[in-house]
Design a protein around this nucleic acid. Structure first.
Length: 203
DNA sequence: GTCGGGATCCTCT
DNA sequence: GAGGATCCCGACA
């Protein structure tokens, strides 16, 4: 990405998010995710994502219908869906579309390029640089995101997505992780990651 | 009210 | 590679 042109049209609008999760997932690779809080700003380049389809996808939270927990998924595209998993870890999702179709993209890994010192403070001194935001739970910890940010608008809120500058990076796809319970859906290649990027959670 | 499972991570062996 | 941590959420009675 060295020498990539700075794209003055990088500002996103609602329409950019208003598309199926698979399509949005690919577009998010190489885009930046940034969280500005009172502690400071932490952000970086998205290198690994998973697409969760509408109600038909047995691995998706929306497959059991709308509940208070997943209500954000059923809302407007371009919002942040945050949930707690295993009672320990927060996971960040970008709500996709089209329209109010409850699809979302899980952010699995980021290559941090801003606020690295703060991220390290949040993650602990022992974490390796390239693992600071590797894995869904680690992304949330490094960025300082928890469920209090569930439902925030990614266009106007403290958590923002900034469009990729330059061309789409080379990417690979494969089955999602940790969804063995989802039957045939577990085998579908709905996980996307940037080829040969060491920040990806599982290679 | 109770119970079981889960889109994970870290440590220890 | 295995296992424990830890608790919310949804299903069911």
């Amino acid at each position: 990405m060295i020498g990539a042109p700075v794209d003055a049209s990088a500002a996103l609008d609602r329409h950019w998010f208003d598309r199926p999760a698979v399509e949005l997932a690919r577009e998010l690779l190489g885009a930046r995710l940034v969280h500005g809080s009172s502690d400071g700003v932490v952000g970086g380049r998205i290198v690994e994502v998973e697409a969760y389809r509408g109600p038909e996808d047995r691995a998706a939270h929306s497959s059991r219908g709308r509940t208070p927990r997943n209500a954000v998924m059923f809302g407007e595209p371009g919002h942040l869906y945050v949930y707690l998993i295993y009672g320990l870890h927060n996971c960040l999702n970008v709500v996709a579309g089209p329209g109010s179709k409850p699809e979302a993209v899980l952010i699995r890994a980021i290559e941090l390029d801003e606020g690295i010192a703060l991220a390290r403070q949040r993650r602990g001194a022992r974490a390796l640089d390239y693992r600071l935001a590797s894995g869904p739970g680690n992304v949330a910890r490094a960025l300082g995101v928890d469920r209090s940010l569930d439902g925030v608008d990614l266009l106007t809120g403290p958590v923002r997505v900034e469009a990729r500058s330059g061309s789409m990076p080379r990417a690979r796809r494969g089955p999602r992780i940790g969804v063995d319970y989802a039957g045939a859906w577990a085998a579908r290649p709905l996980r996307f990651w940037i080829t040969d990027d060491r920040h990806v959670s599982r290679r």
